[in-house]
Design a protein around this nucleic acid. Structure first.
Lengths: 138, 138
DNA sequence: AAATATTTTGCAACATTGTTGCATTTAAAA
DNA sequence: TTTTAAATGCAACAATGTTGCAAAATATTT
């Protein structure tokens, strides 16, 4: 609870109940969340627009990052010290086609790629789709 | 022209002007196209819905594949012999943040990744964002 | 070449997702 | 406690995607 405030303050954001709730949703559910997921999780507590704006703010401040996906956009917590100035992500995302959940594999880094002459890479995004351990087990 | 018909026939599709036009849009523009791009390119010739359905059909038949992106979904031609039964893509996508175009780097394969125990990968999608050669030059 | 069967299209209506402006409320600072 | 600045809710709108159905077009059969 207090930790949420700290995180928000650390990113120069006012503490509001909406921001606290959205942040704790990301912390509790471990997987990436879409706007719709949050709307579901938070019920009628907040206006749709407020959630959109909260996500936008969190993105800008480096609290969450985008996770690409066949069927839409999701967001996940930044684990490292991302900031307004600099997002840094080089981990892999895994989406399970059975349970539908997408997770960050923080420990797995995207391998180096040598691009043809002239290409200047800035960011990398690797999504692997398949079956996650929990769903394989069943 | 005749080649378009052949491609469509080869995938067991009736030849219609819409399908021919969409297909040739993909062939002419080299980069990945969104539904909106196509609507722009084809003008008022076809109903929005028809273009949606054409994309869906092409996807199913293995003529095009999805290209993920920060800001939406796009589609690009399958170069190899993809079919209804099997899509096979392991090339890298590059999106230029300057000109906004996304391209398939057909020759660059996604490097192997060793996943933790239990993960069963099925498909891979690597998007690199940065500046493309044309935009670097300027 | 004409008739038939089947697929595709356009239209209308609707659903979902995301955005903007503005008045009101809330959080932080004085 | 008062003031200032930011965040919220609401309403309206814009963009994107989906569904059902009748009309049109394609391919097949006679």
């Amino acid at each position: 609870m207090e930790q949420l405030r700290e995180t928000l303050k650390g990113h120069h954001l006012r503490t509001t109940t909406c921001r606290e709730d959205v942040l704790s949703a990301f912390i509790n559910k471990k997987n990436a969340l879409s706007h719709g997921d949050l709307e579901g999780a938070l019920g009628e507590s907040y206006d749709r627009v407020t959630i959109y704006r909260t996500l936008k703010t969190f993105l800008e401040k480096g609290i969450i990052h985008k996770v690409l996906d066949d069927e839409g956009l999701r967001y996940a917590l930044c684990s490292q010290q991302c900031s307004e100035e600099k997002h840094q992500h080089d981990h892999i995302h895994f989406k399970c086609s059975a349970c539908g959940k997408t997770n960050c594999l923080e420990n797995l880094h995207i391998p180096n790629v040598t691009l043809p002459q002239g290409y200047q890479p800035a960011s990398f995004n690797l999504l692997i789709q398949g079956t996650c351990p929990e769903c394989v087990a069943e």
